[in-house]
Design a binder for these strands. Structure first.
Lengths: 232, 232
DNA sequence: AATTTCGCTTGACATTTATCAAGCGAGAAG
DNA sequence: CTTCTCGCTTGATAAATGTCAAGCGAAATT
């Protein structure tokens, strides 16, 4: 693991305040590995052996049941995933696969639990991290229970627009197929949802999307900071 | 606050391992109060001032947006709610109202944060508690994204059947109106979903429900421990 | 006791979403 | 270069879900 990769991890809010000693011990027995796209990293139901950290690339968390499956979240660098399963020593509730070629750091679950027991700053950081994870899933659940598919798409576009500089155009960071799954609809319906948004200034050209009537789109989308703002 | 009520709270996994001293200090400035049914305890978006503990009764957590609202969870004694907002010192993401007459303990957020900073056992217990909260919301989200309304009802009935002794009959612990909201459907659709389950041995008599063909119901419901088992 | 309220149910209808089938076109593989 | 695969789109149709309206009956109110 290169030292600048290591410092990326070290600077995560989760690990920033722990002692160097605990940090180094925690990394003992960890793996830092490169995976190609579409590799299954974690299978739902398996025991939680490692905390994973996406250092580079992107990872899709998804869940399957009865022949269906759906994307639960897309994890971008630099952040951890499946922390809760590791801490409870419980089976993973979601599967994970690389959405693109990715660098993943895998920290043995036991190391993390040991570090937490000995390092109070780490324990406090975990509380904050988990509280944040909890709140983001609550927002996702609200998004689903309180909005239609078209509304979810409209808000996704507005959020992405903010992230990408709010200059009237965005580039979808994931394939439309996966976006459909994130938004909880079929790819066919996503196409139709884009068509529905045409009168609101949404012009689709492959992965590039132009938003010419932001105000109109907002009237339809009704963005709500307690659903859409990741910091709230 | 009566001493047996206090010991109920003291024995919560969240507080069981902290020192008596920290526990007592944390309770200073707390309120223990009885509320009638249908009282709003918390409004979505308000700053998180208190950690709430349901000692007796029942509390509905719900979210509202654009004229709709939906039940996010029903909290039963003895447990806490909105821990994450308190710890992050962030606005509540959900509102809360008493579903019935309830005894609620309210602990000032600041007290909790102070206690956590000074008591490592409490911090560790919080990590576990929050991880559990996170996992239960993930399960709820999977339930919604991967199942139809009828399937959600069937699994709710099976889960409740287990909880209530698995003897072929159950009594709904909440009104059908609220159950519909929990399951993410309208009351009209809940009625129809019950009708759909008739051939699977589901007989409705007010709040009393008889389940005569559990195996058939399971074939339809396809229960999955990573969605339905609260301990998994 | 009479009245009102409200939860619940049912029917008719509209809307949303999924499914099946077909076809286009860019990029990968041979 | 050709073929194939696969993501994406569109149309037709079916299924699921929501909305509106009406009515029943139990519980609460007067």
């Amino acid at each position: 693991m290169r030292s600048d990769d290591k410092s990326l991890v070290r600077n995560l809010a989760l690990f920033a305040e722990m002692t160097d000693d605990h940090f180094e011990k925690m990394l003992t027995g960890s793996f830092f590995q490169r995976f190609p796209a579409n590799i299954i990293l974690i299978e739902e139901g398996a025991p939680a052996d490692f905390l994973h950290v996406v250092v580079d690339g992107g990872v899709e968390l998804f869940a399957s049941h009865n022949g269906r499956d759906c994307t639960m979240a897309v994890v971008r660098p630099v952040s951890t995933f499946i922390l809760a399963a590791v801490l409870k020593d419980a089976p993973y509730l979601m599967s994970a696969r690389t959405a693109e070629a990715s660098h993943i750091l895998m920290i043995p679950a036991e190391n993390l639990r040991t570090a937490m027991a000995g390092d109070a700053a780490l324990a406090r950081a975990m509380v904050v991290e988990l509280a944040g994870c909890y709140r983001s899933v609550v927002k996702a659940l609200k998004n689903h229970k309180l909005r239609s598919g078209v509304e979810r798409l409209a808000n996704y576009l507005l959020r992405t627009h903010q992230v990408q500089g709010a200059n009237g155009k965005i580039t979808l960071p994931i394939e439309k197929k996966m976006l459909a799954s994130v938004l909880g609809m079929t790819p066919e319906n996503l196409s139709r949802a884009f068509a529905t948004l045409k009168p609101y200034g949404v012009k689709v050209e492959g992965a590039d999307i132009h938003l010419s009537l932001i105000d109109d789109l907002k009237i339809l989308a009704k963005p709500n900071s307690f659903i859409d703002d990741p910091r709230a």
